[in-house]
């Protein structure tokens, strides 16, 4: 294999592997970010309940 062949192979492989790593890392990151833990759910429910209570008091 000539040097130019090595260059084409390495550049092509690197570009594709780089794109795969970028894409799938971003996907797994966003999936992790979107996970809502039980504590967050509870605090969200409490927050909403407080807001409703405050509205009722105003009325």
């Amino acid at each position: 294999m000539k040097l130019s062949g090595w260059i084409f192979m390495i550049v092509s492989w690197s570009a594709i592997i780089g794109l795969c790593v970028y894409c799938f890392r971003a996907i797994f990151r966003t999936q992790t970010r979107n996970i809502v833990y039980p504590l967050e759910v509870e605090s969200q429910i409490e927050k909403e309940a407080d807001e409703e209570r405050a509205k009722d008091e105003k009325l």
Binding site: I16, I17, L19, C20, Y22, C23, F24, A26, I27
Partner: peptide, 12 residues
């Protein structure tokens, strides 16, 4: 991103 990822997997 989903579209780009599917294309990247295909190219691999």
């Amino acid at each position: 991103l989903s579209s780009l990822s599917a294309s990247a997997a295909n190219e691999f």
